[in-house]
Amino acid sequence: MNTMTLDAAGQTAPAQPESVEKATVDTDTRVTETVGQPFCDDAKLRMRGINVFYGETQAINDVSLDIGRNEVVAMIGPSGCGKSTFLRCINRMNDTIEGCRVEGDLTLDDEPIYGPRVDVVPLRARVGMVFQKPNPFPKSIYENVAYGPKIHGIASRRAELDEIVENSLRRAGLWNEVKDRLDQPGTGLSGGQQQRLCIARAIAVSPEVILMDEPCSALDPIATARIEELIDELRENYTIAIVTHSMQQAARVSQRTAYFHLGHLVEVNDTETVFTNPQHELTEAYITGRFG
C-alpha cells in the first residue's frame, strides 16, 4: 500500500485490482462531479480542471481543488488513485518524468504555475516538498539544511547562514537533538530524525507551501507522532498539502480532506465531515475499510 509507483519509463502502475476486488461497493461508479466543498475564498493554491497523462495513460481526471492559506489539506485514497501525482503537479516535479503531461490551470497566489515564462527554480523554492522516504543528501547535517539557502544565495554572510540553519532545525524540532553534531553526516540519523531533517531542509528556503508525500510511511509510530505534531506547528506559517494513506493521520493533522479515487477527486470536505458523515458512497466505503 504505497503511493502510486512510477517505473523508469514513466508509466503509471494500474490501480491494484486485488484491492478493488474485495470491495462490496461498485467501485466503478462513475465520478462525474466532486461532492463537498473543493473551493475556498482565501485560496493560496487554485487548481481547475487538472488532467495528467503519462504517455497515453491518464492518471488524473479533471480535478479542481483549492488549498487555503495556512491550512492543512490531506489527500487520501487507495493506492494508485493519483494523489501523489496530483501533489507533484503543484511544484512541477512531474516535469522530470519523461512523457508526463499536465493540463489545466494551477495558480499560486493567482500567478500561473504552468506557464511558458514560469521558472521552476523560484517556484520550487516557494513550494517545498518532503518525500515519502527520508532522502537526506550524503553530506553533514549542517550542509543538508544549508544546501537550499546556499544554492539560492539567500544568506549573504556565514552568520546569516548559521542562523537560518539553526532556525530551520529548531522549527523542525531537531535542533536540540543535533546541535552538537552538525558536522556529522545526515544519513547517520534515525529515520524519524532524517525526515525532520528533510523538513528542516525544506523550510530553510522559506517556502510558502509545503507538499508532503506520505512523509510518515517509512517511520515508526513514535517518529510519526513527532512529525504530526510538527505539521500542526508548521501550519502557523505555511500552507501544507499532505498525501497520506493513513486515515487516522489525515484526521489528526488536517483541516480539510480530499478523497481521490482512480484519478478522480471524489469528495472534499472538512476533515470532520469526511470522517463522520461522508457524502459519497465511495468515500464511505473507503473510510469504513471496505476496500483500500
Binding site: D119, V121, P122, A125, H152, G153, V205
Partner: peptide, 10 residues
C-alpha cells in the same frame, strides 16, 4: 526578502 534574493541570482 528571500524571494527577492532568489530572483537576483536566477
Amino acid at each position: 526578502q528571500v524571494r527577492e534574493r532568489i530572483e537576483r541570482r536566477l
